[in-house]
Amino acid sequence: MSDQTQNTPTSSLSAVAANRAETKVPGSSPLGTGLEARGVHAWFDKHLALEDVSLDFSAGTVTALIGPSGCGKSTFIRTLNRMHEFIPHTSMAGQVLLDGKDIYEPGIDVTKIRLQIGMVFQKPNPFPSMTIGENVLSGIKLAQLKIDNRDELLEECLTRAGLWAEVKDRLGAHAGGLSGGQQQRLCIARALAVKPKVLLMDEPCSALDPGSTLRIEETISQLSKSMTIVIVTHNMQQAARVSDYTAFFLSDGGPGQMIEVGPTNEIFSRPRDQRTENYVTGRFG
């Protein structure tokens, strides 16, 4: 099944994926062991929404979660930093290990977990009552952390999020005046300020124009040098451009399952599963 990659319809995507710098090898990063999901199930009431997902996110890699709507991608990403439990009547099973330690272990301080596993949401959500500068440093205040140099951290986070040049002269302005793309990069800067090890991104570009999307993708590439990134996306070009690994999720009417995971260029050039091939070639979804 590997010889026919040249002329399959996936070739344009696989070219994009192959164009990237070399896929990072798991375990090659000095950043720790990353995040590992072990047999994760998720229920809403009695309804099983996600069944038995085991997936490793090696430190310093970018993993894209793709799949049609309702396949459990967002549910899965929310189990990774314990946001799933905010929805009433939910339950789960399985383990999520951060540096080898289960984040669902009883007695664990969940606020510390979320400090290490940051999240960027689908819709930009800067705090409306705060200025741009206050937004970036809001995590420090909310989590009651102590820092030495606020200005330095402010500049560092905004630079890493690719927003510094645009806002450095108006840090005291309210965040509502920024464009959607700028707001989303502000949210990324805000998430970076507490120095998470992992950044979860739930369709961070779905509400943005191509220019802003490009900026955010550049930001992701920059960030992946120093942290682990998990990104849910409906845009397969984006998955091909930014990710080292891609996981394909699907629900056949029942619970969502992970069909296949692999290096991004393999998923887009020679997927092992027929359903993955159908999806990445655009035959459905």
Binding site: G39, T90, S91
Partner: peptide, 14 residues
């Protein structure tokens, strides 16, 4: 796994 998995709520009080 072939065994059925029980839903749990690790976030509630033990």
């Amino acid at each position: 796994s072939t065994t059925t998995v029980k839903p749990v709520r690790p976030w509630t009080a033990t």
